[in-house]
Amino acid sequence: MTASEAARDVTAPETAHDTTASEGVHDARPPEAVLEVRGLSVGFDVPAGRLPAVDGVDLTLRRGEILALVGESGSGKSALSMSLVGLNRGPRTHIAGSVSFGGRELVGASERELRRVRGKDVAVVFQDALAALNPLHRAGAQVAETIRAHGDVPRATAAHRAVELLGEVGIAGPARAARAYPHQLSGGMRQRVMIAMGLANDPAVLIADEPTTALDVTIQAQVLALLKRVQREHGTSVLLITHDLGVVAEVADRVAVMYAGRIVEQGTRDEVLFDPQHPYTMGLLGSVPPLHGPLPERLPAIPGSPPAGVARPSGCGFRPRCGFAQDGCESRPELRRRHGGPAHLDACVLPAEARMRARAAQAAGAAV
């Protein structure tokens, strides 16, 4: 199944679940944590005040898993991921909380300490490969530079390894591609170069920020298959930032749904996609075209817009857009287990009957 087909099929009740992954969460002890985020907050100074991009997020990335971070544009996904290794530090940026990697605290670490971690232990694949790659240097030279930045490796050895990496990520004619400049490569090849740079030092964590954006469906499927192979063969933990539910259905082991800077639902892929508990998650799934049956004339949409300014609604951030909001939603809900397995958490105080009505509205194609 391609990513686009999976996107259309996530709400189909007859879809067969991949029970192996979800059942393993209950039957075996979960893998050890590689990256632990506790109470992370990120704010940016803007003319109107301080913009709360990330608001007290707790998140755990386990060894050898793909964790998808999902949400609309502006929900804080990229701000969170870049703050993990201090890539958005600056005089107008305020980062608080804890990011622990292998017992090392990254929030508050010096720039020198972070440079030892970036690209070696934690690597980043950026959304726009053409903008991220240096247009004045050949692709192979940029991969080789990543290798030499974290080890005393001769130039010739690094150049040879760069060609090997380009071949490992599926580039046909890797030696020729190594001699090319970024603008001479296709979008899919540039993204593969970025992944090769990320894998150059065999990192424990790979942060992939919208790695399939602007790629056609065929190339997108190839990139996703590559990420799965990296996870399987290298044991790499992947934090996948995306807004595409098809991508989530294709590769994710666990899913965290983000809205207005907070995690509102978290669980295994099947729990979140097939048994959503937060109305925001239901709204996202309801906006996906169905794979089976006639297409609706107009897809349902979540009313209103996400909060964009410095002022945020009190209590549940989704309350102004939720058709099932109640008085209890005026208090800030905590992310905790309210239904399902121990790994399925949500930040919604609605009682069971209100959630059932929201699920029915989603199934009927109405706005949540």
Rank of each mutant, 00 (worst) to 15 (best):
E5K: 02
R8F: 07
R8V: 02
A12R: 12
E14F: 07
S22I: 04
G24I: 00
G24C: 12
H26R: 15
A28T: 14
S41C: 11
V46I: 14
P47Q: 06
A48R: 13
G49D: 08
D58W: 08
G71C: 00
G71Y: 07
S73L: 07
S75C: 12
A79F: 04
L80Y: 01
M82C: 10
L87T: 07
R92M: 04
S100A: 15
F101A: 00
G103A: 05
G103F: 06
R104A: 10
E113L: 03
V117D: 00
V117Y: 00
D121F: 01
A123R: 04
R148S: 10
A149F: 12
A156R: 15
T157M: 06
A159G: 11
H160W: 08
R161G: 02
E164G: 06
G167M: 02
A172N: 08
Q184H: 12
M194N: 13
M197I: 09
D202G: 12
V205A: 09
I207R: 05
T218D: 12
I219T: 14
L226I: 10
T236F: 06
S237F: 05
I241R: 06
T242Y: 04
G246T: 06
E250Q: 10
V257A: 11
I263E: 09
G267Y: 05
R269H: 07
D270F: 05
V272N: 05
D275Y: 00
Q277G: 08
T281C: 06
G283N: 05
P289S: 10
P290L: 06
H292Y: 08
G293K: 02
L295H: 00
E297Y: 08
P303W: 09
P306C: 06
R312P: 06
R319P: 03
C329V: 08
E330S: 15
S331R: 15
R332A: 14
R337Y: 09
R338C: 11
G341Y: 00
H344M: 13
A347K: 03
A352E: 15
R355L: 15
A360H: 14
A360V: 12
